[in-house]
Design a protein around this nucleic acid. Structure first.
Lengths: 205, 205
DNA sequence: GTCTATAACCCGATAGAC
DNA sequence: GTCTATCGGGTTATAGAC
């Protein structure tokens, strides 16, 4: 979900607006980003934006759709390019969030998580897209654990383990952003790895 | 951190404002709560509020201080009243968040976590108090694992395990609130318990 | 489709009488 | 300390010329 990975040429007015909004929503949040901010950052003007989008929330919908489309090519593909092992892929993915965190002095982590907690009563269209982003992330990690096959005990619920990868990452980002230190993120991930390692070496199958 | 547990008589104007703000910040978030909202909910007027507080952010500081003071008497004490076992206390605490989640149709969970992600560049005074709330929570859970003594392998880092309890709760609340279902929260907590159980029964000491 | 100007509204904060 | 009225500025969204 690293914004800089979106390298496709941003030629259309629509793309300029969506990518400017994506960056701003990630940096300042949705409510704290004004339409004027988006227009300044994208170099567009109000008439163009309101011609293309009914309102600010529709820009958010486009941003969330773009994140969703980007999960495979922009988030997973780079993180997994040189990591064939399915278990290691889970930690490579988590590592990509650590990189994002430290490369911004722990000022932001997962934009989806931030928006999910910022908007307390989101419009159903927004909530659906947030849920879809989370679901696709969990699906991908679950698939890793499924591919690990018999290396994990049969009794272990792959889905739950994947959900825990996401909660650990999101919770770790929350605490590390608050502390402006990767410490809590590292603590949580280390324990998650400890758990997975225990499962890998468990005698129970 | 359950608001309803604050039963002390709210007699002073200051308390009325702080507790009204506490409820509103939890329900709608900080930015989406206007000063007018706080005044309406508390029955006070602008002059009184601005006489007692320099501005809206100072009300937030008072709210965060109130949460911090309430961790022991309002959050831990009720959750642990009938749970003497230190390990079970950790899960009783996590269970209190599940109760909070389900009793609100999964519309809100931890107000500290919500504010922590809502405010992207909080004033240092705010950030310090958010961090203090997280730290005190983790301290209390760490103490549980310390008290569990030799039941846990010596090699297990108690602090990290406590941090993971918090990240699991916060991440679980985030996903469950988005899905409007306790499913993800339960999934994450179940795996956390699975990990702790593995540690308790580990042959390594 | 693009641009400027502005409408209509809500925000946090303040003034000043009592 | 409490109240009313209001200021100055920022917000989303729109109108209308080009």
């Amino acid at each position: 979900m690293i914004i800089q990975h979106f390298v496709r040429v941003q030629t259309s007015t629509r793309d300029k607006i969506v990518f400017a909004a994506m960056r701003l929503f990630g940096e300042k949040g949705y409510n704290s980003t004004s339409v004027a901010d988006i227009l300044n950052a994208s170099g567009m003007n109000a008439g163009s934006m309101y011609h293309l989008f009914p309102g600010k929330q529709d820009v958010l919908l486009a941003v969330l759709d773009t994140y969703l489309e980007g999960i495979q090519p922009m988030l997973l593909a780079p993180a997994w390019a040189e990591v064939p092992d399915p278990i290691e892929r889970v930690f490579a993915l988590l590592g990509s969030y650590r990189k994002r965190l430290t490369s911004t002095d722990c000022t932001y982590g997962c934009p989806i998580g931030s928006i999910a907690l910022e908007l307390h009563e989101p419009d159903p269209a927004v909530r659906d897209r947030l849920a879809a982003n989370f679901a696709q992330w969990v699906d991908a990690v679950e698939q890793c654990f499924v591919e690990a096959g018999a290396r994990l005990p049969k009794s272990v619920n792959r889905r739950q383990l994947a959900v825990m990868a996401l909660t650990t990452m999101e919770g770790g980002v929350m605490l590390s952003r608050t502390d402006r230190s990767p410490r809590a993120f590292d603590d949580a991930i280390r324990q998650y790895r400890g758990y997975v390692d225990l499962l890998l070496h468990s005698r129970k199958r």
